[in-house]
Nucleic acid binder design. Sequence first.
RNA 1: GGCCUGUUGGUCAAGCGGCUAAGACGUCGCCCUCUCACGGCGAAAACAUGGGUUCGAUUCCCGUACGGGUCACCA
Length: 555
Amino acid sequence: MDTVKLSELLFPHIKKLPAEVEADFPARNLPEGAKVTRLAPSPTGFMHFGTLFPALVNERLAHQSGGVFFLRIEDTDAKREVKGAEKDLIDTLAYYHIHFDEGAVMGGDNGAYGPYRQSHRAEIYQTFAKQLVAEGKAYPCFTTDEELEALAQVDKKAEIKNKDWHADTTEQKEAMLKLRDITIEEVEDHLAAGHAFLIRIKADGDPAKKTPFTDLIKGKLEVPENDEDFVLLKSDGIPTYHFAHAVDDHLMGTTHVIRGEEWLPSLAKHIMLFRYLGFKMPKYMHIAQLMKMEGNSKKKLSKRDNGAALSDYRVTGYAPESVIEYVMTLLNSNYEDWRRMNPTLPYSDFPFSIKKMSTSGALFDFDKLNDVSKNTVAAMSAKTVYDYTVDWAKSYDPEFAEVFGRDEAYSTRILSIGRGGKKPRKDITVWGDVKPYVSLFFDEYFAVIDAYPENFDKADVKAALTAFRDTYDPSVDNNAWFEGLKVIAESLGFAAEVKAYKASPEAYKGHVGDISTFLRIAVAGKTTSPDLYEIMQIIGYDRVIARLNAQIDTL
RNA sequence: GGCCUGUUGGUCAAGCGGCUAAGACGUCGCCCUCUCACGGCGAAAACAUGGGUUCGAUUCCCGUACGGGUCACCA
């Protein structure tokens, strides 16, 4: 068999030699230890939570080492491609502030190792495929799936669909092996008849033999050799994942391949490919999948699952920082300790360690995410929270966006209550929490929701509100203000100190805290609110008096 | 089913042959406190299982059980 002739027959249009292609992709000039990583998603669906894992690990490892992080779109399957998925991918990654040094950008490429969309690299793959055919390491296959299945008397598609796997029969194996025996004459006939063909690798492995392999996360593994003549080039001339991975990551100079552990079983194929092609293998890290609870068992978090779509987090109003922060806690077990020590540093200052990565899949935990988010938002400036909230509300609550965004200084002042310092308030988990929290500051939303406690005489409530109205001086400080409340309390037969009341409750009608509750209901509309003094300072004297009067009139 | 891989409290997770087996979230209790939100203290709660190896196993080895992944002209 003249394999060189065969390769010319199959790829007459490929004139370049592999060496010439190599010349177009020179080795990267990077300092010692710099890692080159990539995110290589396929545009077959919308970004989901799990995608953030490899994205962040790739990004951290590259940038932490002074290396390069690039985006490659693996659009090799036209059938499964989802319209808009690529845009969603690029937009979402930008929304989460995941920055690429090079790669696919909206409408084109940025970088010297492109094209970064695999659909645009057909000739590159074909150059290497041609070489493999010429070297007798790969061969054309004109047999269709249907013919193959008929030959082996199995319906592989049904098996896949029903998850009903059977060991390959000897008939199947023999049928597969026979495909290798195609002759030049047969190829010429097929080509003359215009038949489509695909390229298969001629596997020389023995699955009984194991190759030791070290994964940077999983540690030492045993990989059985590959004996499957898997497809390199599909009949449309576009490669499968395996072949594209080997060619691209070689040419693009990827030093570390970081991907989900679902790729582990394909490792044998990749080892074989790098060997056949004479490429040096990159280092591999297979990271565990994110799981969710389904009934009593863990399941892979898939695209359709509730909470899986990254866009959901945006809609619900989680800050991108919160989501990233949560992912970091899942990725590196010592991240939370570091965060406690460094509450204000950006997450990118964290010394990310491969060693601290979990080998098994974590279960998504909303409670934990919410807690992380609360802390993340609490550490933001009032201005940042304001900007995020208005921006979010514009899409999901336009009326509130208008009201809250009307006076930035005013709204920011509200958000400043209890912000900063050692023990900041943590009222906001998602942007949707802002509205109920701040509504009392806006006349369009203000309403007296809670009733006055029933164990008090309405007359006392009215007297307290009246006394406060008549003495309220917004110019005094918080302490003086509260002293004023105590005076009112005593004048109405309430204890000025809670302790005094508790010591002898029968001696008083109530205590100063009760007086403040009356006020709180009248001015804030409910029994729970941030610091009342601050509220009054912000809403202003006139509004305080108006609200008091409205209550005094109805009591 | 074959192959690969994993198993520490409800969840995440330290641990790397000798510990009263960290910590975080959640739950519960107490304290602080003019409400709320913080904050502080405390409680309940775990090494899947059976064999080895060893003076000694959560840690090393083998089996079992139970998870997970994968087995396409999908990635």
